Every structure is written in structure tokens, then in C-alpha cells.
Amino acid sequence: MEELYHNYKNAVFQSGDPLAEDIVLSNMRVALDRMSLAVKEPFEFSPYHEAIREPFNYYLFGQNYIRPLINFRESYVGNVSIFSEMEEHLKKGENVIFISNHQSEADPAVIALLLETTNPYISENIIYVAGDRVITDPLCKPFSMGRNLLCVYSKKHMNDVPELADMKRRANTRSLKEMALLLRGGSKIIWIAPSGGRDRPDPATNQWFPAPFDASSLDNMRRLVDHAGVVGHIYPLAILCHDIMPPPPQVEKEIGEKRLVSFHGTGISVAPEVNFQTATASCGSPEEAKATYSQALYDSVCEQYSVLQSAINGGKGLEASTSSVSLSQPLQSLD
């Protein structure tokens, strides 16, 4: 906690905000209080967890904590008009699915903060498919309590403790049933990262790029959407925010990773939905179709990620826009 405090303080001071000291003291006072409470009175997450907003507003707490880490003047949103298109689908009772890469524990807050002015409904109502680590780590739990979550055990950590593997599989089955019920109700926005974990830099080049998708996980999601009895739309979403809260270099089994934070630009981008029948029309077998569809979504995420990379880390800003990714800046950057 002491290390986290100093890292957070240094990051917020990087912003040059004249109120940086007050922001640090206010946010860290609340954060440390909630983290301590998470140890003294452990909160148990249900398979489907709805964001807690009272008597303590955990959603607002998470937004306030991450906001000072984002350099909004160097942050970008790709194809904001498509987010507005999604809102029309939701109004008609249809479902929207984001197939995304995953960069940091701050991903949900970054997505919500970059969309809070232009698309507040999406910003606040996304349901995130979350791995067990974000609901068991005491430093992470208070932030997770402020999000809508479908809680699953990641394949990467399924056998960390062999005697718990069967329990984890049963829990995942319950979560899938909850997801199916939610989709049947319609008007749901669900975010899932089919890679099963956070992106990591290439050890040789130290360059960040979206981790490969797991075709089976993605196909399971698609089948749930198709069988819901409600129209569903699947969109590829790219996010770039690793600098504000990077994960450890390697996947760790133990809970309690070191938290590094910094002040940096971030970005998200969405592309037109990818239709399964269209993308797999020439495939000869179900397995080929599964792999082809997964690759089509992954390729779109990578293309968008490259544009965000060029805009943020390449210093090109809005000029990084392409014919398929039109960048704009989040409105709060003008405040």
C-alpha cells in the first residue's frame, strides 16, 4: 500500500495539475480505506455482479481514481459514430458485444472515461467478463465492486491450484448460464477479451501489441449471442492504455503483483461489426470457420491498435486517422 501511494502520487504530479496534492490525498485516503475494508470484511462476488453505487459509490470512486492518470490532451477515440450506432441497437432491445484486447486493470475506467461525455449510457452500463484475480486481490476488489461483472476463471490460471480446478469449472458454468439469461433479456453491452488475460510486451522488442485471441472462447461467446433469441451485434474494440498501469512482464500465479502507475495518453477504437456468415462464407468446416472468424476480429483490433499507437506513442495525434479509423478526442480534454 505504501508503494502504491508513492507511485500514484508521482503519477498524478506528472500531470502538472495545480491541485495534484489534494487529488492524491483525497483519492488515496479513500482507496486505502476501501482496500483495508476489503481485507477486514471480504466481499464475495456473485457470478453476475452489478456495480455498487450505494451507500458507497464504488463506480464513482473508480472513475475519480483513474481520471488524474489520463492525459486527455493526448487521448483518442476511434470511430465515435459507431458507438452512437450501438446505442440505437440497445434502444431497440438488441445486444452489443465488444471483442477486445486487454491491457490493464484500468481498462474499464479508461473505456468509461473516454466515452462518458459522448456515450454516457454505454460508459456506465457495460458488463465486463472478468477473471478471478480482479475479484480476489484486495487492492483490486474495491475497483471491481464498482463495475458490472460476469466473473469467470481464466484458462491461464485454471490449474494454478490443481485441487481447485473442478470448482473453477463449475463456477464458469454458472457464469455462462448467467450470461445467457442476460442476453435473453436484451439491451445488454458485454465486453470480453478472448485472449484470456492482459497484453504483454514482446521480450525481444519491448513493443506492445494485442495478445492472440482464443478461438474457442470467442466462438462460445458468439454461440451464446446467436442462441439468445435476441438480435446481437459483435464489434471489435481496441484499447491502448498499458502505460498508466502496466501488468507484470510475465503472467504470475500469486496474488499481490506490484502496481506501477503513470500519467499518459490512452485510446479506444471500435470498428464496424463483423458478421459471422459473411466472414466465414468460404470456409469448409466448422473448425475452419471458428478460426477464420476469430482471426477477422483479431485483425481488426490489431489494425485499430496500430492507429492508436501511432496517434499516442508515435506523436501523430489526429493525423494518425485512416480511412477506416477516424480519430477524435474525448470532449473532457477541452475542459
Rank of each mutant, 00 (worst) to 15 (best):
H89N: 14
Y59E: 10
A165G: 12
D132Q: 09
R133Y: 00
R133W: 01
P138N: 01
P138V: 00
L113I: 07
Q309D: 00
I126W: 09
P138M: 01
I126M: 11
A238R: 00
G131L: 06
R169L: 08
R147C: 15
K155T: 08
Y48R: 07
R184F: 04
N159H: 12
K91W: 14
V30G: 02
E288D: 13
G317E: 09
C302I: 00
N10A: 15
S75Y: 04
L113Q: 13
K316N: 02
A291S: 11
F56K: 05
L69R: 15
P142N: 06
L218G: 02
A38Q: 10
N10L: 12
S81V: 09
R170M: 11
G314V: 01
K141M: 12
S75G: 06
R184K: 14
G131Y: 05
G62A: 11
E254V: 02
Y48S: 05
L19P: 01
G78V: 07
K91E: 15
A130T: 13
D199K: 13
H49A: 03
K92S: 14
Y121F: 12
E87I: 08
W191G: 11
M221Y: 11
S262D: 14
N64D: 12
V30Q: 07
I99T: 02
S36C: 05
V129E: 05
L182H: 06
D202V: 01
G185A: 06
Q309E: 05
S15T: 07
I239K: 02
V251M: 12
I23N: 05
M86W: 15
P286W: 13
T292V: 14
A271C: 01
S285L: 15
L4F: 12
N7F: 03
S294Q: 08
G185P: 05
E3F: 10
S36W: 09
I97E: 13
A31D: 14
L318I: 15
A215H: 15
S175H: 10
R259A: 14
A271I: 01
R198G: 10
I99V: 08
T205Y: 00
G62C: 07
Y76F: 14
L25T: 14
I312A: 11
G197W: 00
A106D: 01
T292G: 12
V301I: 10
P203D: 00
P248L: 11
S300T: 02
D335E: 11
E273V: 01
S187V: 04
M86C: 15
L181C: 09
I190E: 10
N101A: 10
L32E: 09
V129G: 03
E116W: 06
E105W: 12
S104D: 08
E105S: 05
